[in-house]
Design a protein around this nucleic acid. Structure first.
Lengths: 240, 240
DNA sequence: CGCTATAACTGGTATGTACCATTAATGTAG
DNA sequence: CTACATTAATGGTACATACCAGTTATAGCG
């Protein structure tokens, strides 16, 4: 089980072993782990080394310790997909509503000044402009405008856009997606938003703006999503 | 500096001491910390104990280690930097502006229905109501209303509220803070917000609502922050 | 002067030991 | 049988020591 000659640290081997058993279901949530002293004797390693492995797994929330009682498998190791931010689709499903999309525009246009600077490309460079309406139970909830550098992301079609843009970029173009920054701001609906979202003048809008980068830091995508303030809120879960 | 007779563990005393020096500015971001062996000799404690303290601070992102080089103060570790969300204070500093607070109200009031349900307490239970204005360069940017269960968090004073509520809860009350959920929504300013933020009628407001829980899931705090939409945006960094 | 081998640092891994505080099981006296 | 004390288990803290693996300054050689 443990290879003392391996260049991989013993505590790390033990971590992987325990994680494996949790994932395979050998250790079930709520179960108690063998005690630190048992592990140490069983594997013929020091108790302090066992503690090092367990401490790391406790920090990663796989396990938790109770003094005098033992070490236990944590109930559910939360899967945070992208930070704690819930996506529109997930969120709507969680509320028992049927989410859907409607593509209203897909074309190549020259980049205006502000978009060009956000995408770090020259003004008037070609960019894809993709407009979508996001609906819940067929009621418009948001207008989403995505802008993608056409010189960087080539061969985009409306089909790709409707399935998964990110998957296309990583699998077909072999580019790695990196970090994203997201901005939240409150505004008043402009004409375009009024029209597509079917809301009155002066309605408040929750505007989410995201800039996504490749792994090397090159920005490739700007997304501007205008949410009806009366129908939608963003939720974010924060861990300590 | 270190009291070996104290019931407080030595590694914890050292943690607090280092954190204190970071907060006071004695240790600046990017600086290297004294080496583990130096600390051990200086304080007449074991190097392993020093490592225990430093390891914890590394996990909390106060410090980072580079093998062969040393241990360094992390560039930006802010008070309650939960996930990738930038706080008002840090954000204003990053923009080269001077952030400040003004406490405008601190009292115990009976909980209204919606707050009572969010805090999971009976209606009319006593809660602290704390109103603060957040300013940048002495211009009001946000009205922040914090509501705390008075039966859960006892002995709160305006001084504590002005320094660090979270530290008081964890260090003095010995309660552990857990997760938080944060909601972003866009609204139109109400009378109170108009008055405190000195903005015209129908101004858009970015409203952030946070519910913070203890480790056992009990909610203890509701924060409602109303930001001037023309002056403030929330930024969130997302890692893949 | 410039290069290189070395020495003197740094943190990383691993061992063994000791004793403490909390918890649960066990034994014993009433 | 219950109530209480004892004991054995757990994880928590702290110590001393050893050696490994990177990094950097330096002494010394060509």
């Amino acid at each position: 089980m443990i290879d003392k000659q391996s260049p991989i640290p013993i505590y790390h081997q033990l971590e992987e072993q325990i994680k494996g058993k949790i994932e395979k279901g050998e250790y079930m949530p709520g179960d108690s782990l063998p005690s630190e002293r048992e592990y140490a004797e069983e594997l013929n390693i020091s108790r302090m080394t066992v503690r090092q492995a367990i401490t790391n797994l406790v920090n990663e929330r796989y396990l938790h310790r109770i003094k005098g009682k033992g070490t236990f498998i944590t109930e559910k190791k939360f899967e945070q997909n992208l930070s704690g931010l819930t996506s529109f689709t997930e969120d709507m499903k969680a509320r028992g509503m049927k989410p859907s999309n409607k593509l209203v525009n897909f074309e190549i246009v020259p980049a205006k000044k502000s978009l060009a600077s956000q995408l770090n490309i020259p003004e008037h460079s070609p960019i894809y402009e993709i407009k979508r309406i996001r609906l819940a139970e067929d009621i418009p909830m948001a207008l989403e405008r995505t802008y993608v550098s056409a010189n960087l992301i080539k061969g985009l079609t409306d089909d790709i856009v409707q399935s998964s843009l990110y998957q296309y970029i990583e699998d077909d173009l072999q580019l790695k997606i990196g970090k994203a920054s997201q901005l939240f701001e409150a505004t008043i609906a402009n004409d375009e938003e009024m029209e597509y979202l079917n809301i009155p003048e002066h309605s408040p809008i929750l505007l989410m703006r995201r800039i996504t980068q490749l792994e090397d830091g090159t920005p490739f995508e700007v997304v501007k999503s205008a949410y009806r303030a009366d129908r939608y809120q963003f939720m974010l879960d924060l861990e300590r």
